[in-house]
Nucleic acid binder design. Structure first.
Lengths: 197, 197, 197, 197
DNA sequence: TATGAATGAGCTTTCATTCAT
DNA sequence: CATGAATGAAAGCTCATTCAT
């Protein structure tokens, strides 16, 4: 990648990061291009230089979040720790990510409204990839008789719902900090999965 | 209530019901008054005859949903069944409600954007009331040594998150119908709470 | 006129009186049919029973005001008093009328916007009639060498402007009451007209 | 001021000038943003680029008119001419201004309906400033025994009313042109004020 | 690359007017 | 005669998007 391309890529990521935050805060329809640009001390026009349109920005934000999440969990998955540890750790990282980005699911709501069929396809694929990482861990845990014999998909959706909901109730001024909250949530959810608890 | 008042109340409720559904589908900003009206074969003007403005409509939708949920759980709470049954049953009803209305949490997102301080106050009160019903059951379960000694608030938020998330993944065309899904979700979440499981 | 016709006429006048006041206060475009009806504890529908449309109401209000003004000045004109007294008295009555109705000229602004050609014709006629009453007095005063030899039309327009403007600055809470103010304005304007002053 | 700022200021003034004319013609409620924009071959959106909202436009129009009037009269006041000449000249300029802008008082009607308390305060201040200029001349004339000993405020209000009313009756197609009419009005009104006439 | 003026479609809201009852 | 529910046109305003510079 040339220097120029690097610079562009860097700028794009800056914009995406800003967009993610604001989109998470105000929702897709509630966020204006002005908002996103102003937050970066740019003008709207400049944003349009990097992204075709608002929808493209949303799409790439979404994509970036998912890809980062996948990286996170992949990294954990290949570590040499117990299956129990893997799941718990994955959840902690997920919750932390959600809390940090103040997002995690605002963007995931009703994708069919915003995205083209092609884009939806790509996003579904990424989501499936991410989901699959969890499914695999759960599957392995069940086979190893560490986890109860639950329906993988339903269990995984329960985990996701419980984790993503954290943006609705966690406030930084509480007694617990992000790490503690993430740990507690993960612990509690593990109770659902673990045998002999 | 006179006949006329009854008719107005009925019409208002029709509109609210329609609004709830569409708002849940498209989000607040994504829903137009036209959408809501057209869905009922009315004109925008007619909707404005019954509601001051869009925000008023959103507020009352929200309120209606919460009040109905409170009624549901209150009804269950006073039944003569075990604490375990109470919680499970409450969850089943909640999930069914969420699935039926296709809502349950889209409306709860970022209320500070849409509502006046006064309205937020009222809604927070209703939410607190609803949450409190669950907290009480959990509390009682803990005291009776039926439930694990978890942090009530965190546990309740996990339940809510897991339940509300169902709108994201449940589709009517799956193998399981609403009732079954609701039962499974409730069962799985009970595993988190129950001792000796 | 039958009793029924009398009742209708009475109701019409009530509405006109109410309309005049509100139109004067809020302007034509700023006044809604709702405002006018509510002020009389009626419904909009009822007003439409008596008047074809809003414009008709405005037209008839206008007409009523002008006719009353003409009556006023005609009455004075036939009295057996000096020409000087006639003009002064006419002005006093005009100012009092304007102050009482809080109108007098809001309604006269840009009639071409609101009225049909036919209606404008009729109103112009009434206005001309009213103006003519003043012109005649002025004319007579000039011929009798009591008034200066001014251009009648210009002089009359100056009088009207000065008198109608009173709604802009007179407030009931001042030192002078309506009668006093009307007298002072008339006196001052007489200075413009009277010779040997 | 940079070139860009100059251009913006110029555009703003163009819009204001257009707005003043149309507002004077149709009144505040009767004027649409579309009207104002179309008159300048712009789109509504462009107008909104320069002014926050319709009310802001009205306010600034009003302000511009008043400030220009104040400049006019201030300029005359400092000239080395007799007090009589000062007043007469001020009136001539006022009438010419009113006729040219086709406004002068439509905008002054019922400001409490349109403006915020703060805006009203500012406008009252400017109006007071303008009125004060006339009051001072009148006061000086009285002290110098050139003018009759009239109530300053009432006299000034009579002058304003008479002058502003000109928009109601002066039409360019008459025998007299603007300058002549302004001179006649001023002359006639001087008769009210001057002693020994 | 970046700017910012401008566009235009679309949204919320108001209100004169109609009409069945 | 009167009501009030409903309509529909039009207004104010927003904002994604474009484009000349």
């Amino acid at each position: 990648m040339s220097l120029r391309e690097r610079k562009i890529a860097k700028k794009k990521e800056d914009i995406l990061r800003s967009a993610v935050r604001i989109l998470a805060e105000k929702g897709y329809q509630g966020t204006t291009m002005e908002d996103i640009a102003a937050n970066l001390l740019m003008t709207k026009g400049a944003v349009y230089y990097y992204f075709r349109d608002k929808q493209d920005l949303l799409y790439q934000s979404h994509q970036m979040l998912l890809e980062r999440s996948i990286e996170n969990v992949k990294y954990i998955q290949q570590q040499d720790i117990s299956i129990e540890e893997k799941l718990k750790h994955s959840m902690v990282v997920h919750v932390e990510h959600v809390v940090n980005e103040q997002s995690g699911f605002e963007l995931m709501l009703k994708p069919e409204q915003f995205f083209s069929e092609e884009q939806q396809e790509k996003l579904r694929e990424l989501q499936a990839k991410y989901s699959h990482c969890f499914d695999e861990i759960i599957q392995e845990g069940i086979q190893m008789q560490v986890f109860r014999n639950l329906d993988k998909k339903i269990a995984r959706n329960i985990l996701f719902g419980a984790m993503n909901w954290v943006t609705q109730w966690y406030t930084a001024d509480g007694k617990k900090d992000k790490k503690e909250i993430a740990a507690v949530i993960a612990d509690y959810l593990m109770l659902m999965l673990l045998k002999n608890k």
